[in-house]
């Protein structure tokens, strides 16, 4: 059973601010790294674009069709990783996934913490993780489209 408080936490202001006006929602032509992600259960699709310079992410952007949670997550992602080294970005992606899967915080994730409202909604966790998985694919050069169902099937 979900409570009013849990629903308000899922759609808290900061999440809705990002989903209504996502940051860096655009295509980067000639991006050095990019990857596509897909959630076959709800049809969400995302492409993450990265402009790299000396092992750092100079610019991050995305294009997506998706729900409020996936848009907010992608928007926060681009904010968080701009300026990071690729290793830091991968590290952060791992940390966010673990946090969304219910593991305790090991460091302050800032506004990304707001996404953990999905934990009360098992069917929605993958909405929040999709952009991060896609980021990982873009950074590690995995060729295929990332699917949120890859590990459950």
């Amino acid at each position: 059973m979900t409570t009013d408080a849990q629903l308000s936490r899922l759609y808290q202001d900061i999440v809705l601010r990002h989903s209504r006006n996502p940051h860096n929602q655009r295509r980067i032509e000639a991006a050095q790294a990019h990857a596509d992600g897909h959630n076959p259960l709800c049809g969400d699709r995302i492409t993450v674009y990265l402009q790299l310079e000396h092992g750092h992410i100079r610019e991050a952007a995305f294009e997506a069709v998706g729900c409020a949670i996936s848009l907010a997550s992608a928007s926060m992602l681009t904010d968080a990783i701009t300026g990071c080294s690729t290793a830091e970005a991968l590290n952060l992606a791992g940390e966010v996934e673990a946090r969304l899967a219910g593991q305790p915080a090991t460091r302050d994730l800032g506004e990304i913490e707001a996404l953990s409202g999905v934990r009360a909604y098992p069917a929605r966790v993958r909405c929040a993780t999709l952009p991060w998985r896609t980021l990982q694919a873009a950074l590690t050069g995995a060729a295929q489209t990332v699917s949120t169902e890859a590990e459950t099937r």
Binding site: Y11, G43, D44, I69, A123
Partner: peptide, 26 residues
């Protein structure tokens, strides 16, 4: 302005069960 998936969650919260997505008819 509302993605079907978000709609489904808010409706379910109120006890209303509907389906959202592509309905196996992409």
């Amino acid at each position: 302005g509302i993605h079907p998936h978000d709609l489904g969650t808010v409706l379910d919260h109120q006890g209303v069960a509907i389906r959202t997505g592509h309905h196996c008819a992409m």
